[in-house]
């Protein structure tokens, strides 16, 4: 129980209460419906709504109780408190893997899940249904078109040489509070040594830390940030699609980390049938291209990601658990904090 104790200690140290906290909640379908599937998810209601409406439309007798929480809170609710939910959706693959690894997820095998490619499901307990790429988002006004960096190495050089210009105008996830940020950072560190040099120059220049992609995109769009590093593509894409000319997505040529949004049915599921229907509905998103388009999600399509560029895909497997190790985590966070020179900022 030391891991859990450490996790709770970690969470309480940042001012969270014992019980998990939710950010939002909404009900879909008929209010008096007896057949309700309770979902806890890290995805915002505004993103997920078209999908839920389509599901309710397909299964009119089923009501959907959709709860939004941060990835840490979702994990806390399901792993520590074993709260009653029928389906758990999260983009924090490592935390989902921890639930599945520790035998707290129910096995589900269906025609739909059989079609998932290798690495997109694990032990038939956790299933990926969309993938998202972490991209480099720039504010056009902050760059000359010629100096837009196309690789991390170029970005390191650019920031090193223009520390004053970018000071306080760099945005990235605060890995101490964002589970997704932590996952992306650890995967970056596995993919390339450049990650730590990048953190160093970000720290030297002074970086603003965010909890969520949406805030970073907003600040880039408004020119408060020159660029944001590791922004999830689906949110960013929507902004660009809405015609914000100041926002530009840069795809790095060295590698792009892509993560998968996963779903699992917890062991203490109440409405198993509806949960399975919902899970099958999610993993077959590729069959409904219009819905994929309206949510801005990239469905997992039979093995083929949309972009064939150098994608460093994080796949499902217990090696994701390595960075959840309490000792490893505190080492990593400590290194990151010192690289980011956060002590300077707080002074």
């Amino acid at each position: 129980m030391r891991v859990i104790a450490a996790a709770i200690a970690f969470l309480t140290s940042f001012g969270w209460a014992q019980a998990f906290e939710i950010e939002d909640q909404k009900f879909y379908g008929f209010e008096d419906s007896k057949d309700v599937v309770k979902i806890i998810s890290t995805s915002d209601i505004e993103i997920f709504e078209p999908l839920l409406l389509a599901f309710v439309n397909k299964y009119p007798s089923v009501g959907v109780d959709y709860t939004v929480a941060s990835s840490q809170q979702v994990f806390k609710a399901v792993y520590d408190e074993q709260a009653e939910f029928d389906l758990v959706i999260s983009s924090a693959m490592d935390l989902q893997m921890k639930i599945a690894n520790d035998n707290l997820a129910r096995q589900h095998i269906s025609e739909a899940t059989q079609r998932l490619p290798e690495g997109a499901k694990w032990r038939d307990r956790v299933f990926a249904f969309t993938y998202e790429t972490a991209v480099f988002l720039i504010s056009r006004s902050a760059f000359h078109q010629s100096e837009v960096p196309l690789s991390r190495r170029a970005l390191v050089e650019l920031v090193r040489q223009n520390t004053d210009r970018f000071s306080g105008r760099i945005g990235t996830y605060d890995i101490r509070i964002s589970g997704l940020g932590y996952l992306l950072a650890t995967q970056d560190s596995l993919s390339s040594q450049t990650y730590w040099r990048l953190t160093e120059v970000f720290g030297l220049a002074g970086t603003r830390l965010y909890c969520c992609s949406a805030d970073m995109i907003r600040d880039v769009e408004q020119g408060r940030l020159a660029f944001a590093y590791n922004v999830l593509d689906s949110y960013a894409l929507r902004k660009v699609a809405e015609g914000k000319p100041n926002v530009q997505i840069v795809e790095f040529s060295d590698f792009q980390t892509s993560i998968m949004r996963t779903a699992l049915i917890p062991k203490n599921v109440k409405n198993e049938e509806a949960a399975e229907a919902m899970l099958d509905f999610l993993v077959t998103l590729a069959d409904r291209p219009n819905l994929a388009l309206s949510t801005g999600m990239n469905p997992i399509i039979e093995g083929e990601p949309k972009s064939k560029k150098l994608l460093s895909s994080v796949t499902l497997g217990p090696s994701l658990l390595v960075f959840l190790d309490s000792m490893k985590r505190s080492d990593f966070v400590n290194s990151w904090v010192s690289s980011m020179r956060i002590w300077q900022e707080s002074n």
């Binding site: 596995l190 497997g317 217990p318 090696s319 658990l321 390595v322 960075f323 190790d325 000792m327 490893k328 080492d331």
Partner: peptide
Amino acid sequence: QLDLPHSAF
């Protein structure tokens, strides 16, 4: 101190 190696997993 233990730096859990990713390669082991």
